[in-house]
C-alpha cells in the first residue's frame, strides 16, 4: 500500500507539471498561453498585475513555487468569461456533476452487474448471446453521440423531457415540485451516462462470473444440493463481485470523462458544461482549472477504491485479480 501512496503522489506531480509547464513552454508570451483570448480585452496594467500574480518575471522554479502556493490556497485563477474566480465557478457547478455521476454510477453498476451475473452464469446461452450483441452495439456509441441521440429523439422529437439545464429557470418551484423538476432534468443525462457505462460493468462482471463458475467451490455448492439461484448469487456472484470493487476507481475516472460530454450535450450546468463553455471562449484559466479539478477528483476516487480494496483480505484480493487476469 505504501507503494500505492507513492504512485498517487507521482501521478499528482505529473498532472501538476503538465498544468504548469504546458502553457509556459509554449512559444510566445506565457501570459497569452495562460489567459488565451481574454488577454486581448485587458489593460496593460491588468496584464502586468496578472504577470506578477503568476510570478512570470521570476525563474521557472520560482514560478512553480508561486503556482503551487496558489493551488494550495485554492486559487485556480480568475475566469473572465464567468467573471468570477475559477474555484468559485467550479464549486457552484460541482453538485450537479456529482448528482449526475453519483446516480449514474449506482444505476449503471447495478444493472451492469445484474445482467453480467445472468449472462456469465449461462454464458453461451441465448440471453448471453443477446446481451453480448446488445452491449457490443451500446459500447460502440460514444457518450456524446448517445446524449445527442437521446436528446434528439426523446426531447426534441417526442418532447418527453426538457431540452437542457438542470432546473426550469425562473419556475419558482419549491419542495417536492422542485425535486420532481430536478429529476425530470436529470433523467436523460443520467440515462445517457448510464447506458454508456453499462457495457464495461457488464463485461467485467460476466468475465468474472465465467472465472468463478469454473472454480471447484461451485461444484461443491452444487454437490450440496443448493438451489441454482442460491448458488448463482450467494456463492458465485459474491466472489465475482470482488474484481468489480477493485476496478471501481477506473470506472469513476471514465464516468468523469463521460460526464464532460453528456453535460455539454444537455447543457447541464455541471463542471463539464462550464468546461465546454470556457473552451469555446478560450477562457484558459477556467479550462485548466476545471480539468485540474476533475483530474484531482478522479485521482481521489481511484485512491479511495485502492484503499478499500486494500482492506479486502489479501487472499480474496489475489483471488479477484486472478479472476480478471484469466480474462
Amino acid at each position: 500500500m505504501k507503494r500505492r501512496y507513492l504512485d498517487y503522489i507521482l501521478a499528482l506531480v505529473v498532472i501538476l507539471s503538465l498544468n504548469f509547464f504546458l502553457p509556459r513552454l509554449m512559444p510566445g508570451d506565457p501570459l497569452t498561453a495562460i489567459y488565451g483570448d481574454a488577454l486581448l480585452d485587458m489593460s496593460p496594467e491588468l496584464q502586468a498585475q496578472l504577470a506578477e500574480r503568476y510570478g512570470l518575471e521570476g525563474t521557472l522554479g520560482e514560478q512553480f513555487i508561486t503556482y503551487v502556493t496558489n493551488l494550495l490556497r485554492g486559487d485556480l485563477g480568475y475566469s473572465y468569461y464567468f467573471g468570477a474566480p475559477v474555484t468559485e465557478v467550479i464549486l457552484e457547478a460541482l453538485p450537479w456533476t456529482l448528482l449526475l455521476v453519483g446516480s449514474s454510477l449506482l444505476i449503471s453498476t447495478f444493472i451492469g452487474v445484474l445482467i453480467g451475473i445472468e449472462s456469465g452464469w449461462r454464458h453461451g446461452g441465448r440471453l448471453d448471446s443477446f446481451l453480448i450483441v446488445a452491449v457490443m452495439f451500446l459500447n460502440g456509441i460514444p457518450s456524446f453521440f448517445m446524449g445527442i441521440l437521446l436528446l434528439l429523439f426523446l426531447s426534441f422529437q417526442l418532447h418527453l423531457f426538457p431540452l437542457s439545464g438542470a432546473v426550469t429557470p425562473f419556475s419558482g418551484y419549491t419542495g417536492m415540485a422542485l425535486v420532481m423538476d430536478i429529476l425530470r432534468h436529470l433523467f436523460l443525462p443520467c440515462l445517457a451516462l448510464t447506458l454508456v457505462q453499462i457495457p464495461r460493468n457488464f463485461l467485467l462482471m460476466r468475465n468474472s462470473m465465467i472465472g468463478v463458475i469454473r472454480t471447484p467451490y461451485i461444484l461443491t455448492a452444487q454437490g450440496k444440493g443448493l438451489k441454482e439461484r442460491v448458488i448463482q448469487y450467494r456463492h458465485a456472484a459474491r466472489g465475482a463481485l470482488l474484481p468489480i470493487i477493485t476496478r471501481l476507481g477506473m470506472s469513476i475516472g471514465l464516468l468523469f470523462t463521460g460526464v464532460l460530454f453528456i453535460e455539454t450535450v444537455f447543457a447541464y450546468p455541471g463542471t463539464g458544461y462550464i468546461f465546454y463553455l470556457a473552451l469555446g471562449k478560450h477562457d484558459f484559466p477556467m479550462v485548466q482549472g476545471t480539468l485540474f479539478f476533475i483530474t484531482l477528483f478522479v485521482l481521489a476516487a481511484n485512491f479511495l477504491t485502492d484503499v478499500i480494496s486494500a482492506k479486502i483480505d489479501p487472499r480474496l484480493r489475489e483471488h479477484a485479480y486472478q479472476l480478471l487476469d484469466r480474462t
Binding site: D7, L18, T257, L291, L299
Partner: peptide
C-alpha cells in the same frame, strides 16, 4: 502511475495547447 491518470482529460489539456 499512467493507469491512475485520467487519460482523456490529460489529452484534452494537452490538445488545447
Amino acid at each position: 502511475i499512467m493507469l491512475i491518470l485520467p487519460v482523456f482529460l490529460i489529452a484534452i489539456l494537452v490538445a488545447i495547447y
